[in-house]
Computed example of a mutant assay.
Amino acid sequence: MARGLFAESGADLKLVGVRKQFPGYTAVEELDLTVPAGTFFALLGPSGCGKTTTLRLVAGLEEPTAGRILIGGTDVTDTKPYRRPVNTVFQSYALFPHMTVLENVAFGLRRRGIGDPVEKAHAALRLVELDHLADRKPAQLSGGQQQRVALARAVVNRPALLLLDEPLGALDLKLRRQMQLELKNIQSEVGLTFVHVTHDQEEAMTMADTVAVMNRGRIEQIGAPEEIYELPRTAFVANFLGQSNLFGGTVAESGSGAFGVDVAGRRILVPIDRAQRTTGAVTVGVRPEKLLLVTEEPAPMAGVNVLGPGRVTDVSFSGVSTQYLIDVPHVGTVIVFAQNLVFGPVVEPGAEVWVTWRVEHGFGLADAPAASALEQAHEALVSGVEG
């Protein structure tokens, strides 16, 4: 479908020193953010982190306490919501029940006096593959179909910026994953700038070109999904975007490409270019899927870290992989995700095991004391459940 039918291009979004205070608390703290035109941007974080407030500030539904909001280089901080080149798709579809699907999509065009509203509405419905249901009422559609109609209604208005506020939250898991791919394809097709708010880590990583992880009104880290996952800066990010094994220790040596950390009597090597801190007390980590589980103490090998022995305390089958929890003395619980290549678990609870991982898979956090990092890790895990 021709991109020009909907919008010449999206516009960039810039927040400069934006702060939002409510009585008794600050929801957004001095936020500086740039979203390039034509990209799919995700604001990811737990409930109460400020992401939805940020979206409402951009839409004009809230007024910032301080700072400026620019869309396509134009300052819209004091511009009324209906005058901003923005459309929002909410979790609640808010379709007019007495109108047909086609009438719902064409409604905004007719109201604004845009030419050829029916033709444009049909084109938007073809984009979301629902033109064959144009004459149905919303009540005759499934939840996923209603969400696609809401998306078509937003896209047909040719906004420079499309805001998505947890738009897939009401859908079941299988449909949500299908819609994730469809949303990404639609964004690529029409070339708009999408800003998507979600607490779903997989959703953010699946769809977005860039992810910003928010915590307590601030952005903790921003970058491509792969970059943030592979190189988290803080314990909060490491455990909100996926899971991580975090170890506290003291730097004992430093070489040309890696430094050694004393972790419960074991020397753990971490690449210098994958660490935020390389001296003193540090927190280092590795993702659970990077670990290998072995039942005999491995011989020392260049480029490989070893931790153990420990005891398997829990084995959980999840289909694609099995999760093992291992209690390592003076270290704590280590999580291992092992791909299910054989039937049944590799080891049972109570087994003595060691874990190994390649040095290049480790990372070092900005968090200095281990206790602080572990507290933040716990906070991230709890936030993920609540969010």
Rank of each mutant, 00 (worst) to 15 (best):
F236E: 04
R148S: 03
T279Q: 15
G67W: 09
G260A: 11
V261D: 07
R148F: 08
E379W: 14
F40K: 08
D12E: 15
L293S: 01
A11G: 07
L70Y: 06
T77L: 01
R158H: 08
F96G: 08
K20A: 02
T88R: 01
L173S: 09
K120R: 15
V155P: 09
L31M: 12
G17F: 07
V35F: 02
N305D: 05
R83L: 15
L70G: 09
A212P: 09
V306R: 12
V284C: 03
R110V: 10
R266D: 13
Q376T: 12
A212Q: 11
E189D: 05
R84K: 13
F236T: 00
H361C: 12
V89I: 10
F259I: 06
L241K: 01
V76D: 15
T193A: 05
I335P: 12
G169F: 00
I69Q: 04
L163G: 09
N239C: 13
S142N: 04
R218D: 09
T79V: 13
L231K: 03
L192E: 10
E203Q: 13
F240C: 01
Q187P: 05
F259M: 10
I228R: 06
V251T: 12
R126G: 12
V336W: 04
T65K: 10
P138F: 10
E352I: 14
V336A: 03
F317L: 14
L307W: 03
G260M: 14
R110I: 11
G108V: 14
A351H: 12
K51G: 05
G50T: 02
I186H: 04
G38N: 00
R68L: 09
A123L: 14
G350S: 11
L246N: 08
V282E: 05
V190K: 06
G144W: 11
F337I: 14
P349W: 09
F194C: 10
V282H: 01
